[in-house]
Design a protein around this nucleic acid. Sequence first.
DNA 1: CCTGCGTTATGCAAAAAAGTCATAACGGTG
DNA 2: CACCGTTATGACTTTTTTGCATAACGCAGG
Lengths: 110, 110
Amino acid sequence: MEIKSKLWIEVEGEPVFGRGRRFLLQAIDKYGSINQAAKEINISYRKAWGYINAMEKRLGIRLVERQAGGKNGGGATLTKEAREFLKKYEMMEEGIREIVDARFKEIFGE
Amino acid sequence: MEIKSKLWIEVEGEPVFGRGRRFLLQAIDKYGSINQAAKEINISYRKAWGYINAMEKRLGIRLVERQAGGKNGGGATLTKEAREFLKKYEMMEEGIREIVDARFKEIFGE
DNA sequence: CCTGCGTTATGCAAAAAAGTCATAACGGTG
DNA sequence: CACCGTTATGACTTTTTTGCATAACGCAGG
C-alpha cells in the first residue's frame, strides 16, 4: 500500500502543466528535438506534440520554437518564457512529495 | 490559472482510495444508502458500486454492508473497518491542500 | 397472497479518451 | 536533386470510462 500524489496547473478547468509536461520540456531543452525528447520520456511524438500545442494554446504563450527541415533535419528549443515557467513549477513541486510521504507513514504506520 | 492536487492510495499499482471515494463513503454513512450517496456526490449508482467493489477487493476488507430488499427497500452501512480507514485518510489529507495552495501563491504570485 | 416500492446487483452498449500508424512537408547537405 | 531527420496532422485502433436497461431482493400495505 503506497501513497501517490499529483500536482498540476489548470486554466479554465483544463490541465496545462504537470509532471509529465515538465519532463517533456526539460527533455526538449536537453536534446533540442521534440522527437528525441518524446523517446526519452517514453511517449509518442504525436502525444508530445499534442501536449505542447495544448499548453501553448491555453497559456497563450509560445513555449517551443520549432523548425522542420534544415540543419540536422530541424529541431526545437525552449523559449525564454518556457524556461521561466518551468523554473517556477520546479520550485513549487519541490518537497511536496516528501511532505505527503512523511504524513502517510506517520498515520498509516510502517 | 490555478493549482490542483490529488492524493490517493494504491495497492499493487491500482488506485484504491482517494478524495472521491472518501466522499462516497462519507455519504453512505450519512444516508445509509449507496443510491442516495451517489446522487449526493453526483456520480451514477453504477460507478459508486464499481468503486466499492474495487476498493474491497484490493484492500481485502469489507467496507460496506449491503442489503437489497427489506425495510425501505434495503440499504447500506459502513463497517467498523471502513470507518477506521476513512478516519486515517481524513487525517492524512488534512492540510495538504493548504500547503500546496500556499506554495503556489508564493511562487506564481497573483 | 400478491403488488408496489426503493434498494442492491450486473451485463452490455455507447461514448469518450488515449494511443498508434501512416504520410506529408520542410530545408540544409552532399 | 535525392536523402535525411525533423516537425505537422489526419485517420484509425485500442483502451478506458460512462451510462442504460433490467433483474432480484424482501418488507409493507391492501
